[in-house]
Design a protein around this nucleic acid. Sequence first.
DNA 1: ATAATAACGGAACGATCGTTCCGTTATTAT
DNA 2: ATAATAACGGAACGATCGTTCCGTTATTAT
Lengths: 209, 209
Amino acid sequence: MFRIFSIFGKEFNFEAMARTKEFNEDQALDKAIEIFWHKGYNGTSAQDLVTHLGLSRSSLYDTFGDKQKLFVKSLQRYQQQNEESLKLLFENAENIKTALTEIFKQAVVESLQDRITKGCFMVNSAVELAMHDPEIGKIVHDNQKAVEEVFYQAIKKGQEYGQISDKQEARSLARFIFNNYSGIRVLARAGERDKQVYDDILKSIFALF
Amino acid sequence: MFRIFSIFGKEFNFEAMARTKEFNEDQALDKAIEIFWHKGYNGTSAQDLVTHLGLSRSSLYDTFGDKQKLFVKSLQRYQQQNEESLKLLFENAENIKTALTEIFKQAVVESLQDRITKGCFMVNSAVELAMHDPEIGKIVHDNQKAVEEVFYQAIKKGQEYGQISDKQEARSLARFIFNNYSGIRVLARAGERDKQVYDDILKSIFALF
DNA sequence: ATAATAACGGAACGATCGTTCCGTTATTAT
DNA sequence: ATAATAACGGAACGATCGTTCCGTTATTAT
């Protein structure tokens, strides 16, 4: 980007500008999330990425390094977006128990309407890659801890406000909620389209609160 | 296999035998289950199969057709074995609630001791392939219904015997149990090794019974 | 011993994989 | 207008993929 010429003791700070990128990196990442989410890491080819992101192979590799690095960036972006929206949801909620049920109802709606059932990108990646790629394993594990913590703080607050029964420990409930959320995403990914199945699960979960 | 010669009106029924297989087909399938379970479908190469099953490429293709057919056979075998052992467990159980907790405790033990965390072959396949391969999608869905039914019958029996609270519908509880079982298998696949996490989940689940 | 043939070992196939390379294009400070 | 250079398009790379092919081997009824 910069070149410094030193001639006769005088320095010339010369900067040359080059062609600008014709695409937005974050938009490209969002498209990468879409296709990795749908097809998985091993199921997505370099050609799939070129076609779906709409950039050339060279631009793709110049910008993101390689397929694995692009995947990692995509998963990290997905993680941040999800954690953020989860936090926001609880922050703006008047009633924690209602907020919790809303999260699950929303997951059910998504599971039923998804034409191409994608489930959850994080769950899919955990199953496919967590144990084979340490870097992704760490993202998955960190996400688990982070989401558990969001649930935990919310539930603890709910118990203090008397919105959630305190017969169960908040930590235990948070982990339980996380577990059922994973389960539902697997069910969706497996193609379950019977609303009654999801509703039955939700009924049992919230009998505990 | 058979050739019938008809010479001068007289029939000769000639049968020739050939070399016998040097491997047991079911044992080969068990090895295929192992490697597909560990690495997934797309993560397992033909070379992996040749190496791990210990047969030549030609024997592999002569016997099982192709990679997809071998995978389907492996998954079906796994399904049958699991459904069978689940049924047996409930049949021999004196107390249904105890049997249910045993199933989960066993899953936790497996999750913690697995050196190479494999999770559940059915859950892994559901996430990786159910929506991309209709044949596998059907196996996954049929398994879900079958296992749910085993849980349902067991829980109903448990409620009749007064071993399980009947505040919750048996159908609802069966689906709930299935969901948590999936969730725990994902957690294991994600590499969770903290026993407390699993125990917290189990504690919440069985607070409902 | 012979004939028939499936099982076997392993080389070879075309297709596709992820990645690199290279000539061209677009951009901007000079 | 020129110089510098990153972005671009797309051909090309070696490696690996799943699968097929073929000559050899082992088996058994005859």
